[in-house]
């Protein structure tokens, strides 16, 4: 096949996922749906079908490093949650399940990281208060207060994010329940670099679309891996890169502050919902990542709606995300 003008590499986020083919299909569905939520985004809100537009794409999959083939099997969180509460999305995402392994920090630095990281997320996730007698729970359900979660779920989400962040950022060896070992950061770096190289064979310009914990992997590879191919546009969605403790671990050696990955990347678009709990208290990056060669992060606020404001298909439905992706792909 002839090389196309652009190619996309997707990097998924937190928690266990459907099998790679299914996850890719679900992501492509999320991006290609026409007018997915007209009450949130006024039509016309045309989807982008990457097959029709002739854009080759790769999914960088790493959920198996933590969860092996224990795939997510309920895909309902990816579909339009008409008439469903956000709780259903969390349940379907298995975010309420405990983390498979609790991190065991070795150094004081690691210990401090985990404590602060968990505290940062905790500040964004509020425990649902017990319903007082005489109050109809259905009335509260409509309130859709972001971050208002049952205590057990809140704990599970924080621990899972902390576990993934910890093993990645400190390049810890992780032993899966089937006994397979991974040096997590090295493994995730290698996988993404390979995918970027494969995509570079198919398209002239690379666009990386990353979500949640996947944005850490993307930034790390673009900033810190010497063999990373050139990327035209990095898009981060619902990213925890604003959390100081994360930034410190991703900082290039010798720098006092994180910077724009200008050696590989031309443009970085960060799309956030201020109420997305995984973004922490600081979802905007322009002031956190030093501009380089006149390049700086473009922060864009977009609604993820509902109670659990971190859902990937909600970000994919956004008018601004779609406009920026169209722009990045020069469609």
């Amino acid at each position: 096949m002839p090389k196309r003008r652009s190619a996309v590499v997707f990097v998924h986020g937190l928690a266990k996922k459907p099998p790679p083919d299914k996850l890719l299909e679900l992501w492509l569905m999320g991006i290609s749906r026409d007018n997915p939520r007209p009450d949130v985004f006024a039509p016309p809100n045309k989807g982008i079908n990457l097959y029709t537009k002739g854009v080759p794409h790769e999914l960088n999959y790493y959920a198996d490093v933590f969860y092996a083939d224990d795939y997510e099997t309920d895909f309902s969180s990816y579909f339009e949650a008409e008439g469903r509460g956000a709780d259903a999305e969390i349940l379907a995402d298995k975010l309420d399940e405990p983390a498979p392994v609790a991190p065991i920090p070795v150094t004081p630095e690691e210990q401090a990281f985990l404590a602060r990281f968990e505290a940062e997320l905790s500040s964004q996730l509020i425990t649902e208060p017990p319903v007082a007698p005489g109050i109809n729970p259905a009335a509260l359900a409509g309130a859709e207060i972001a971050g208002l979660l049952p205590a057990a779920w809140r704990e599970a989400i924080i621990k899972k994010a902390a576990m993934e962040a910890y093993y990645f950022l400190f390049d810890k060896e992780y032993t899966r329940k089937d006994g397979v070992n991974f040096q997590v950061r090295s493994e995730l770096r290698r996988r993404l670099v390979d995918k970027l190289k494969a995509a570079a064979e198919k398209g002239e310009k690379l666009v990386v679309v990353s979500h949640s914990m996947g944005t850490m992997v993307a930034y790390d590879v673009l900033r810190n891996c010497a063999d990373c191919p050139k990327v035209e546009t990095l898009i981060t969605l619902g990213s925890p890169l604003g959390i100081k403790e994360v930034q410190v671990e991703l900082r290039a050696p010798g720098l006092q502050k994180n910077d724009f990955p200008a050696a590989t990347t031309s443009r970085w678009i960060n799309i956030y919902d201020p109420l997305d709990p995984i973004c922490g208290a600081d979802p905007k990056f322009a002031n956190d990542f030093e501009p380089v060669d006149g390049k700086s992060v473009e922060d864009i606020k977009e609604s993820n709606w509902s109670k659990w404001r971190h859902t990937i298909t909600h970000y994919f439905a956004g008018l601004q995300f779609r406009a920026k992706l169209t722009e990045a792909l020069d469609l």
């Binding site: 096949m1 196309r4 003008r5 990457l50 097959y51 029709t52 537009k53 002739g54 854009v55 080759p56 469609l331």
Partner: peptide, 12 residues
């Protein structure tokens, strides 16, 4: 008009 041709596949 478009200058991009679709990707080949069973649904193209």
């Amino acid at each position: 008009a478009t200058r991009d041709l679709p990707l080949l596949g069973p649904k193209a």
